[in-house]
């Protein structure tokens, strides 16, 4: 081995050296980009951080004219819409993943998985388009009146049915993250060794008992990772949410009411931010979003890696 290395140095010495430098530099650029991103964002957000301090996180007045900025309604809207989305998407997504990897006959799984993979590639703006013209009108005319009539005693389902609003945002997010949760969960489930399934089956477990006893328990941290990856996605999801959430920085108990998320606030107002402080406040919102998604994603990756084999699916 050493002789080999030596001989290559004789023939291609400086060529190899240069090439090594080149590929190393290419890789280092990624480091520069990430560090640059962090530094640039912190610097640009600094005026706002200095002006508002912690009150930025805990006050709800967003007033560009008076240059008073509090991001609480955005934080609230981001969390509520994402939690709503996960409440819908997680049971369905994991259920579907279990169906595809454990229950479905072998011929049915590949075409459905293929369809789901394709749908994961549909861009956000197209989901948004569908949300505006199909989902929101359907919510306004059918779902919300029905919910209001039956569950209207809950504050969650009170108020006029606009169609657009928190409910629409949660639903569209659920539809968008579901293919993703299925894809990652399926990889996680496929990474469960068959010996585990056989152990349960040989004990006289039914298929569902095998899934519960041997598969889901074994894969639970990986599935948790899949859920967190889904959360990371929905927190940062921009276009579709912007198109259906109603874009009003208010906190309301009702899911029918319009809201705002951090990402959609940036999307709507960034290009029109007239003053430096306004721009800085928007960048601080972006910084906040960045920090939260990095934490969520890092956690998710650790969890999915712990199951192993699913690393490939986590790439996104």
């Amino acid at each position: 081995m050493r002789r080999l290395a030596h001989s290559t140095r004789v023939t291609g010495g400086w060529g190899d050296h240069l090439f090594r430098l080149l590929i190393r530099a290419a890789a280092l650029i990624l480091l520069v980009i990430v560090l640059g991103l962090v530094i640039v964002m912190i610097r640009a957000a600094f005026p706002s951080i200095r002006a508002f301090g912690w009150s930025f996180l805990f006050t709800s007045r967003w007033d560009p004219v008076a240059e008073k900025f509090g991001a609480l309604p955005l934080i609230y809207g981001t969390i509520v819409s994402s939690v709503l989305a996960l409440l819908i998407a997680v049971p369905l997504g994991i259920g579907a993943a279990v169906y595809l990897s454990e229950v479905a006959p072998p011929w049915i799984s590949p075409p459905i998985s293929f369809l789901i993979e394709l749908l994961a590639a549909v861009p956000s703006v197209v989901y948004g388009l569908w949300g505006i013209f199909i989902l929101a009108p359907w919510l306004r005319t059918q779902v919300q009146p029905a919910l209001g009539a039956t569950l209207g005693f809950l504050p969650l389902f009170q108020g006029p049915p606009y169609g657009v609003g928190m409910l629409a945002a949660g639903l569209i997010l659920a539809i968008m993250v579901v293919p993703f949760i299925i894809a990652v969960s399926r990889e996680v489930l496929l990474a469960v060794p068959n010996a585990q399934r056989e152990a349960a089956l040989a004990l006289g477990a039914t298929r569902w008992e095998t899934t519960r006893l041997a598969v889901l328990r074994y894969a639970r941290s990986g599935l948790m990772g899949a859920v967190l990856l889904g959360l990371g996605r929905s927190l940062g999801e921009t276009m579709a949410v912007t198109m259906v959430i109603g874009n009003r920085p208010e906190i309301s108990a009702s899911l029918f009411a319009p809201g705002y998320t951090m990402a959609s606030m940036i999307a709507n107002e960034f290009a029109e931010a007239t003053s430096d402080l306004y721009l800085s406040a928007l960048i601080e919102v972006g910084l906040l979003l960045f920090v939260v998604t990095v934490i969520v994603n890092a956690l998710a990756r650790l969890l999915v890696w712990s199951v192993g084999g699913a690393v490939k699916a986590v790439r996104e």
Partner: peptide, 22 residues
């Protein structure tokens, strides 16, 4: 680098937009 690549992959694209803007 691998870790940062995965981090960058999880960053919302709107944040990348802010970065490109600045």
């Amino acid at each position: 680098i691998r870790f940062l690549a995965d981090v960058l992959n999880g960053v919302p694209s709107i944040v990348i937009g802010i970065f490109a803007y600045t």
